[in-house]
Design a protein around this nucleic acid. Sequence first.
DNA 1: AAATGTGTGTAGAACGTTCTCCATTGCCCG
DNA 2: CGGGCAATGGAGAACGTTCTACACACATTT
Lengths: 336, 336
Amino acid sequence: MTSGRVTIADVARRAGVSTAAVSKVVRGAYGVSAEMQAKVTQAIDELGYRPHAAARALRGRTYTLGVMLSDTRNPFFPDIIEGVTGGLAGTEYQVLLGPGGIEPKTQARVTDAMIDRSMDGLILISPVMTDAELTAIATTTPVVVVGRHGGAAAYDAVVDDDVMGARLVVDHLVGLGHTRIAHITHLERARAQGLPHTVRADGYRQAMRAHGLADDVLATSFTEEGGYEGARELLARGGRPTAIFAGADIAALGVLRAADEAGLSVPEDLSVAGYDNIGIASLKRISLTSVDQDGQVIGATAARLLVERIEGRTRSVTSSVSPTLIVRGTTGPPRR
Amino acid sequence: MTSGRVTIADVARRAGVSTAAVSKVVRGAYGVSAEMQAKVTQAIDELGYRPHAAARALRGRTYTLGVMLSDTRNPFFPDIIEGVTGGLAGTEYQVLLGPGGIEPKTQARVTDAMIDRSMDGLILISPVMTDAELTAIATTTPVVVVGRHGGAAAYDAVVDDDVMGARLVVDHLVGLGHTRIAHITHLERARAQGLPHTVRADGYRQAMRAHGLADDVLATSFTEEGGYEGARELLARGGRPTAIFAGADIAALGVLRAADEAGLSVPEDLSVAGYDNIGIASLKRISLTSVDQDGQVIGATAARLLVERIEGRTRSVTSSVSPTLIVRGTTGPPRR
DNA sequence: AAATGTGTGTAGAACGTTCTCCATTGCCCG
DNA sequence: CGGGCAATGGAGAACGTTCTACACACATTT
C-alpha cells in the first residue's frame, strides 16, 4: 500500500485467503472452487491488481514475447508487427520490439537483452547471425526466425516463398513479350546464408531458364541509390534490357529515376518491377508493379508458431507463405 | 549450473567471495578493493556471467527504457528510435519498443505492460491520452512525452517547434510570390490536446496573418487519400489556391496525385509543400518541399531527458527542437 | 468401519538480485 | 597502547511471484 503498487498479498488479505490461492486464480490453475474464484476476482477488481511481470519472471512465465527488428527503416516491418500483435490478440502475451540494427554485434546485444529479461520467446526478423549462433539462442529460449531460408532443427522459421515470387515476376514479364529481363540484387554478405535476396536471384535464374532465356544479374544494393546505379549500368549496355526486375521496391524506385533521366518512358521503353509492395508502390504517382508478401500473414504465423513452441511443441516447423503479384502501371508490353 | 544460466552465486563461488561482493563489483558500487575488483571481474569473464535483468527488477534498476510507438507505420519513427538508441550508446540502458496502436485503450495496455515489467523510464511518442492519464503514469515512472505540446509538470516533453515549421513554409511560399495559400490539416480529435497538426494549423494562420493574407484551412486526414480529397475540393473552387501546404508529407503525396489528375503541372500551376520530410520526399521522382524535424535530435534529446530524470531531476523540462525547411522541386513561383 | 480417493486450500521454499546493516581489519592519533 | 575511524567484505532480509508439497474435509469403495 505504501509503495503504491498493489501486490498479490494485498489481494489475498482483502479476499481473506492465501497468496497461493490468489496465484491459482490469476493463472487459471486447477483446484479452485467457484466461490474462491468469485471472492478473489472481486478483490482483484476492487484493488486494480495487475501481476508484476518482472516478479513472475523469476519463477514462471513472463508473458512477454520479443521481436528483434534488424532494420527499423524497412517499410515492410509494420505489417509484420501488426500481424504478430494481431495473431496474439486475445492471449495474455505482450509484444516488445528490440531495435537490433544491421550489425551482428548489436543484434546479439539486443537478443541477449531480451533473454536476460526472461522473455518467453523470440521472433527474429532477418537476423544476421550464423546458424550456430541462432541454434545457441534457440536452446535457451523458443525462437522463430522470419525471413531466412533453410532453418535448422532448433527453431521454427517463417519465410516468404521468394522463388515463387521471382517466378511470378518473370512469368508476368515474359507473358507481356519481354525476353531481355535483367535482375538487380543485393551484394552478397558472407556471414549469413539463405537471405531473401539470394533466393530471389536464384528464383529469377530458375524462371528465366524455364523460359529458355538468358539471365542477367547485377549486384548493387537494396537502396534507392543502388537501384539507380544498377539501372544506369544496365541501360548503358548494348542490347539493353526491356525490363528490369529489382529485388526490392526501394531499389525499383532508383530504377525509375534512372529511366526518367535516360528519357525512357515507363513502361513503353522499360518495364520495372519490384518486390515487397511497400506502401508507396500503390501511390498513383509511382504505381509500381511489385510482389506482395503479406507481412500480416507472416507475422501472425510467426506468432502462432512461437506460442505453440512455448506451450510444448518440440518438432521444428518451417512455414512458407506464398506471395502474390500486384500488377500496376510500371510493367507493360515492350515497344517493338 | 544445471539450469544453464550463470548466476551471481556461481561467480561468487568461483571467485571465493560473497554474492554481495560480486553485486558491488557489477554495479560499480563503493567499497571494493582493487584486488576484489580483479578477482571478480576475472570470474565474470571466465563464466560469461550476465546479470539477470528480471531478477534485478525486483530490487533495484532494470536498465530498460520503454518507448511507446503510437503508430508503427509512421515513417518518422525510425529516426526517433535511432536518436534514442544513439543517445543511449555507451550507457547500460537497453531500449525496448512497445507497439501502442492508435487507440487510447491499446496504448494504455502497452504502457501498463511496460510499467509491469519494471522499466526504469518511458518515452511516449504522440500518446493519445488525457493529461490526467499521462500525469498518473508519470507519478509511477519517469516519463518523457514526444510530439505533444503543452506538457505538464509531472513529465518532460520534447516537441518540434511546429509553429516555426509552418511559418517557414508560409514565408517561403510568400517569398516566391504566392498569396492564395491553402492548408490541409487533420480532423480534430477531441480527446488529446496540443497535437502537432493543431499547432501547425495555428502556426499557418499566424504566419498568414503576419503577411496580411487570408487563411484557408481544410480539415481532412493525414493520409494519401485525405490529401487527395482535400486538394480536389480546394482546386474545384473558384479562385483556387496557387499553393497548398499539407500538414504531413503523406497527405502532400495525395495532393500531388490530385494535381496530376487535374492536369496541373507542379510547381508551375500549383506549388505543394509537406511536413516531416519522410524518406521518399527526397526521391527525385517526388522531390517534395518539406519541413524536416530531425527525428534523431528529438530522439536523442528525449533519451537524455529521461536518463536525467531517472537519475534524480525532479524539475520538469520541455525541449523544443527547431525544424528546417528543405526546398525541393514542388515549390516555385506562381504562373502569372 | 477402515481404507482409499478426490477436491480444495495453505505453508513455505524457491527464483536471482540488491541493499541494509554489521563484523572485521588496519591505521592514525592522542 | 587503547580508542576511534575509515575501508572493506559478508549475512541475511527483502522484492512479488510460482510451485511443490502437504493438510484437511468429505465422499466413495472394500
